[in-house]
Structure formats: structure tokens, C-alpha cells
Design a protein around this nucleic acid. Structure first.
Lengths: 218, 218
DNA sequence: TGACAATGATTGTCGGACAATCACAGTGTG
DNA sequence: CACACTGTGATTGTCCGACAATCATTGTCA
């Protein structure tokens, strides 16, 4: 349990937070489920104060929500939350696409696209989803702005959380990849308008897909 | 000290965090200054664990920075940090301006502009600065997306922090107001391109101003 | 001068304690 | 029977004290 790796620079709090993130993303803890301090302290073998700090980290990332005097629960996303997340992503990613269509170095994006395509070809759902999100992050990264990338990461984290509890069937993975490849091509050609349109369409489609799946899971 | 207001729903941690924010924004605690847990606990009359939680809040807001085993210090912004902040603001606010130029209700923006102009007319520097930042936030608010507004708030918070230690001479307040008024006019006219250009120019000018002042303060 | 050890300050984590608050079940009353 | 009230247990919010680990600094010695 206490894996004291060669050089473990991370604090106990960080490790607990990481462990909790894993649980959430794996779907072991579904939205709305309470995160009790004492019980978590026991399972992780740490003090309650440490768990509290870890929970505060998760809360500041939006993965968990604190209700005063009632505890912390796994964040539940409403339909309007989903809409907000996709709206925010559109703002950030389209700004990245604009930069990409007007000169920014596209190498990182093409690299992300390649790994995405590879994962999809191998029908590895987990890796595919991850690579997909990585690709979108790479769009924001075109802006060369760590703060914006961090914001984008928070958004995708929230999404992963919402989707963890839902069966992640993305049968048309190949078609998805083609869409993204088209986006990159448009950027490379400097077609700003076209690239933005492609992105907008893709995100809109993804939003309805996510919303529908989420609604179905209740 | 313990002002038990009529209905005080806030936790001790929240109050300490708020107190710390006040100290930072007032410039009482300059960038780089350490925030010692025990000493803060004594001055606020609370336990060290409570201070730790408050410090974690400040840290997650970017106002403070934690160096493992060495403590928390007031965040110091480098020149590249400033550039990043303004870059991020441009992304968020120009998206808001786009929305404003294509139909979004401009009432909140005009209201913010009015209070800004009032403050500037009265030569109230503190209020003027605050209203100025409020105006820019209102641009992002046009997107009707709480997550993006929160991100914008963090950015302006970082800026306020950087400027707190610098003498806040904004002698040309009237000219500034005129710039913003022009921006609103362009939005109202639906001149997307023009409004974006106006915003871009304004932010660029502000960036050099801030950078210069910050460099001079060393 | 420069490597090294001793020292003091501070953080990271632990454990326990207790009041305040919440959720809920049981009780009594109209 | 509906409804307000009260008691009870669980949980959080906050406090306190403790101690090892780490860092910064100072003093020592080759």
C-alpha cells in the first residue's frame, strides 16, 4: 500500500487525491455518492485531516462538491452543466484553432491525432477516449498559454467524470477520427472559418451525444 | 473579532481566506512574502489546521503558491506570467465581445460601464480600478457561462495581486473610459471585427503598462 | 575557502477531542 | 390521520497537542 517509490516527492495528500481521482474516473464512485472523511481515512490508512485536504483539492477541481455540514459528494452534472462545459470548450478550442490556422506550429496536434487514430484502430476504448480528449487539449495548447490549458483540463476532467458512470460506447470511432483529421487539414490550409465550423459542428454533435447518454443512464 | 452576524453561514476557513485576500489585495503582504501557518493562526485566533485550509483555498485561486516543505508565499508574477494572463483574458473577453456583437443582451455591460465612468469621474482610484475590472468581467459574462466567468475572475484576481504592491496611478482614467465606451458602441453596432480590434488594442496597451510598472517596482 | 555537522524553524501528518449541525426515526397532539 | 416536536446517532467543523521530516542557517573543521 505505502509504495515508497525510489524518490517519492509527492505528499500523502497528493497520493490520496490521486487515488480518489482514479476511483471517480473508473466509475467506482458514481455522481452524487458521498465521500465520507472517516471511512476514506480508514481505507487509505491516513488521518482524517489528510483526507480533508485531498477532498478540498478534488473540490477545487470541480470533481467533488462540498455541502456545508453535510459533506462532500461526487459532483453531479446537470444538463445545463454539460451545455456550459461544451460552451466553454468551444471558446477555448476555437481560439486554439484560430491560432493553428494562422501560423502556430501544428506538430503537437498532428502527433495527438496520430496516437488517437492508433488507439481507435485497435478498438481500445479506454485509450481512444483518453487520446481523443488529449487531441482537444492539444488544440488549446496551440495558444501556448498554461493557464488556458489548465482550464481546459478542468473541463475535460468534469466530462470524464460525467461519462465514467455511463457505458462508453463510441462505435463510430473511425468516423470520429476522420472528422478530426479534416479539422487539422483545414487548419493547415489556413482556412480559419472552415476549421472553426468543423470544430463547432463536432462539439455540438458530441454534446447531444453526451447529453443523450447521460439522460438515458437515469 | 468574532462578529457573529445575524446569520453567519460562513465557515471559519472562509473568513480566514477572505481576511487573507484582503491583506493581499491591500498590498499589506507583497509578492514573495511568506505566509507562516503558526503566525497567521495566532493573528487570526484560529487553529493551524484552519489556516492550512484557508491557504489551500488561496493556493487553488493562484493568489498564493505552495513550495513543499517550505511553506506558502504570496504569488510572484513574472513578466511571462503577465503576458499569459493578458493572453488568456484576450481569449475569454474577445469571445464575449463576439457574443455581444451578435445579439447578446448588452444591458449588463452598459451598466458596468456606467459605474466605471462614475468612479473615474470622482477620481476614486480604488473604486475605479475595481469597476474597470468589473467591466471586463461583464464582457465574459455575455457568454452566459459561469465556468468561463470563474476563470476570468481568477485571472483578474491574479492581476489585482500583482498591482496591489505597485502604486496604482492611472492618470488617464477619462481616456480609458472613452476607450471602453467606444468598444460598447462597436458591439452595439454589430461591428464584430472592429470591437475585437478595439479590445485587442486596449489589452495590449494595458499589458505594456502593467509590465512597465511592475518592472519599475523592482 | 569550502565541505560538513549541529541547530532551530517550519511544514507534513497524525491522533484525539468536542460542539454544532444534519438526517431520521419515534412520539405525542390536534 | 396529518403534523409538529423531540431525541438520537452520524458526520462535519474546528480545536489542540504531538512528532518526524525537511529546510535554512550557522558554526566548525580540515
Amino acid at each position: 500500500m505505502a509504495d515508497t517509490s525510489p524518490i517519492d516527492r509527492s505528499s500523502t495528500t497528493d497520493r490520496v487525491a490521486e487515488g480518489l481521482r482514479d476511483l471517480l474516473f473508473a466509475g467506482d464512485l458514481g455522481p452524487g455518492e458521498p465521500l465520507r472523511e472517516v471511512s476514506l481515512a480508514e481505507t487509505f490508512g491516513v488521518a482524517r485531516s489528510t483526507v480533508r485536504e485531498a477532498l478540498q483539492v478534488l473540490t477545487s477541481e470541480g470533481l467533488a462538491t462540498r455541502f456545508p455540514h453535510r459533506g462532500v459528494v461526487v459532483t453531479e452534472l446537470s444538463e445545463s452543466d454539460i451545455a456550459e462545459i461544451f460552451g466553454a470548450r468551444l471558446v477555448l478550442e476555437s481560439a486554439g484553432v484560430r491560432a493553428g490556422a494562422t501560423g502556430a506550429d501544428l506538430a503537437p496536434v498532428t502527433r495527438a491525432l496520430t496516437t488517437y487514430a492508433d488507439a481507435a484502430r485497435q478498438d481500445d476504448e479506454v485509450r481512444t477516449t483518453h487520446a481523443h480528449l488529449e487531441f482537444h487539449t492539444s488544440l488549446v495548447a496551440l495558444l501556448d498559454n498554461a493557464r488556458l490549458v489548465a482550464s481546459a483540463d478542468v473541463l475535460t476532467g468534469d466530462l470524464r467524470l460525467a461519462l465514467a458512470s455511463v457505458e462508453r460506447a463510441e462505435r463510430n470511432a473511425r468516423a470520429q477520427v476522420a472528422t478530426h483529421r479534416r479539422l487539422v487539414t483545414l487548419m493547415r490550409a489556413g482556412d480559419e472559418r472552415g476549421a472553426i465550423d468543423e470544430l463547432t459542428g463536432h462539439l455540438a454533435a458530441a454534446e447531444v451525444s453526451v447529453t443523450r447518454r447521460l439522460a438515458a443512464s437515469q
